[in-house]
Every structure is written in C-alpha cells, then in structure tokens.
Amino acid sequence: MPDLSSDTGVMDKVQNVLNLDDEDIISYIFIAPAMLFIGVFILLPILFNVFLSFTKWNVVGPIEFVGLTNYIEMFQSPEFWGAFGNTVYFVAVAVPLTIASSLFLAILLDQKIKGLGFFRTAFFSPQVISFVAAGLVWVWMLDANKGLINYLLGFLGIDPINWLQSTVWAMPAVILLTVWRFAGYFMVVYLAGLQGIPESYYEAAELDGAGKGWKSFIHITWPLLKPTTLFVTIMMLFFSFRGFAQFHAMTRGGPMGSTTVLVYRMYELAFDKFNMGEASAVAVLLIIISMIVSRVQMNLLGEE
C-alpha cells in the first residue's frame, strides 16, 4: 500500500477539488479492483444492452439504429408470446412446488431424530450436481423406450410416454428436475426458520388441544414462517426465471418450442440467429422484470 500523504501535487489537487479526505481515497483504492470488473462486465453491459436493443446488428455487419423496431417486432412475434407463456408456466409451477417440497423436508428434519446430519446432507446433495449432468440423468430416466420411469409405469398398466418429445410432458419433466435440484437448498433456509420458532408456542397450542399436528401447522408454523416463505419465494423466482442449463440439457427448448423460456429465446435469437437487436430487447425485458421483483422484495422484506 503506497503512502498517499507523501503523494505530491496532482493527488492533493484532486483531493481538494473533490473535497475528499484520506479515508475517501483509501476506500476508493480498496474498492477499485471490484468496481473495475463490476463496472466493465456488469454495469457497462447493462447500459450497452439497452443501447443494442434499439439497433439491428448481426455481429459481423455494422450496427444500425432502428428506434423501437426490435420492441415492436418482439411484442408482435408469436414466438415471443410462446416463450413468455412458457416462462410463466415454468415459474408458476416450479416455485410453489419447490416451496412445498422444501418445507416438507424441513419439517421432517425439525423433529427429534437420529441421523439429522446424514438426512440433511442427503437432501441437500442435489445442489452439488450441475444442471447439465443432472439433466442427462433425467433424460435417461425419462427415455421413452429404455427409461426407468416408463418401465415402472408399465407395471401400473400405463403405456410408455414419450416424455421429452411431447409438448405436454416436456415442461413438467424440466420442472421436476428443477424442483429436485433446489428443494434441499431451500430446506436449509426453512430449517433455520423453523428452529427460530420457540417450542413454548407449540406447548401453549397443545394445552389448547391443537397439538403439533396439522392445526398447529396452520395456526402457528405457517404464519410464523411468513418471512422465510417470502424470502424463499423471491429467491426461487429468480432461480427459475433465469433458468437455462436445465432446458439446454434436457430439451433444447423443444419440442416445437414448448420449453423455450425467455432466456432460451434470447440465447437462440442472439447466438443461433445472430439477431442481436431483438435478443437485446428480450434481455432488457428480463432485466426490467428482475429489477421489479427485487424492488417488490425489498418493500415486502422492509415491512417484515
């Protein structure tokens, strides 16, 4: 760390003009590396993205300013609305399913049980496998001819289902993988929330005859977990909204676009069709939606 006070001339002048004290200068030096990388590769790209969304550009040719054309084309294209619908479907099913399964697992573990550490590790473990590797396992289990799922369904007299080639079943299959991968992660969050509820609340309920069953869950556990649920909901909203790898590994957006979510649409437009302008318009929309969600989150969490 250079001694700044001995730095003569220029530095002092800058310091005087901006009215900065030594602590300001030291702070800026400490945050400089982080701010440099974040500035160039996060902040600048966000602004550049907005700029590109007003242009037509195919990567090799010149960048041409076209005003709102990309947004008009985006909102007029049936593929966009298809992707929009798929995103809503994916998020609207994956989020509540993840909440339900993670809370279920957490409640299971929030008992006086032996081997808590083992079960917690087991439930958390899907978090360590990549969506690509896990997706391949899912593809194999769901294989129409030789997959385990159809084999087991055969015993119940159900005909083989062509899961990933079906416009009806492909999305539920990807949702299942997503929920499997995140349930253990949010279980840990819920477990911390559950352990924050004083035992005396349940004891009081027991005296009133509610016990530790369904009734006490509705009247005590669920209401007291509201902040945790809110947090889990928002985080899972983000995690599912930005989902890409599970689609790339399992369906590549197909069949017939039935699993093309907005992020996948943006990827295809930009890196398959080299329509950078319209792809940027989709990206801007994704960023705006994310910002709104995080704004809502801050307001809601602020109230709690």
Partner: peptide
C-alpha cells in the same frame, strides 16, 4: 455504490451475455 452493487445481484450472466460477448 452499495445500492448499485445490490442491483447487480439480480442481473446474472445470461441476462448480459450479449454485451459481455461483444465486449
């Protein structure tokens, strides 16, 4: 600066892939 940093958390790589690719 802190507020700006907070905001960057909600913009993952995939949402800035096009400009990052360009840069």
């Amino acid at each position: 600066l802190f507020a700006i940093l907070l905001a960057t958390l909600v913009v993952p790589f995939q949402m800035r892939a096009i400009p990052v690719y360009t840069i």
